[in-house]
Design a protein around this nucleic acid. Sequence first.
DNA 1: ATATATGTAACTACAAAAGTTTCATGATAA
DNA 2: TTATCATGAAACTTTTGTAGTTACATATAT
Lengths: 143, 143
Amino acid sequence: MRKDSRLSRVLHILVHLGAIDRPVTSEKMAEMISTNPVVVRRTMALLREANYVTSTKGHHGGWKLAKPLADITLLDIHNALGEGSIFTIGLTDEHSECVIEQAVNVALKDVMNEAEALMLKRFGQITLNQLGADRIFSYLNDV
Amino acid sequence: MRKDSRLSRVLHILVHLGAIDRPVTSEKMAEMISTNPVVVRRTMALLREANYVTSTKGHHGGWKLAKPLADITLLDIHNALGEGSIFTIGLTDEHSECVIEQAVNVALKDVMNEAEALMLKRFGQITLNQLGADRIFSYLNDV
DNA sequence: ATATATGTAACTACAAAAGTTTCATGATAA
DNA sequence: TTATCATGAAACTTTTGTAGTTACATATAT
């Protein structure tokens, strides 16, 4: 099933943005994640609506962070991208009259809810500035 | 994104199978889950390969459980359906040279692995015979 | 023999992200 | 004020795997 890689891609972009002081164009960002500028704008527009980034047109225009990386969690970005379910597993018609079908769906839903809650909790505990800080730090020491 | 409802559907079918003593045709099962017999066979074939059901052709043929519901967990069925990721969230190219991209992917993967482990653990704790047993019991008392 | 079922191949439909093309709009620089 | 640069947005096509469908071969019980 096709994966939604917008979260991974846009996090990558945001961490780069945090290290650059001037506006970055969607053209440059598209290079970072090997895609098309329009794809970038589409996703970044969702973050702008949620006030995590700003965009300016024209000469020296582009995208900037609206707040420090330390003030943004993975959960914030995940939520800004929309509400779609995080699971590929779907339930059958929930309006079924069949008690067995209802029971199956309740069991699956309970487990999925628990797993999703854990995931969102963890996402909420990670801010973008601490994203792999240890790895990047050790990399800088090597150069 | 399109959901994979095979787990939900096939669990529904299996619990019914546990309550019926004779072989059930894919035609009847298709009615249970409002679909086509071929769709049913396709999914049931995966369970047969994993030895959870048997099928017989011809007159009075159909599908039967190969073992009691009590000996099958949700995890067993989940595994029998294949190995695809349970998450709609995907990571970008994991062979990237970019340290930031790597760090983002590690963070996401860690969280997703933890959530998946919890989910699979729960699936392994639920056998098909106890699937909503309390609900079905209370339903029977009401009739 | 005949009716009944599965087994399987070869399609089409669908949904949502991703990719692409194109052009309007606005901002800066010269 | 004009050329250039950048976003904004519409209108597509592509992609990928489940789901749905049609058709037919094969095996089995009566």
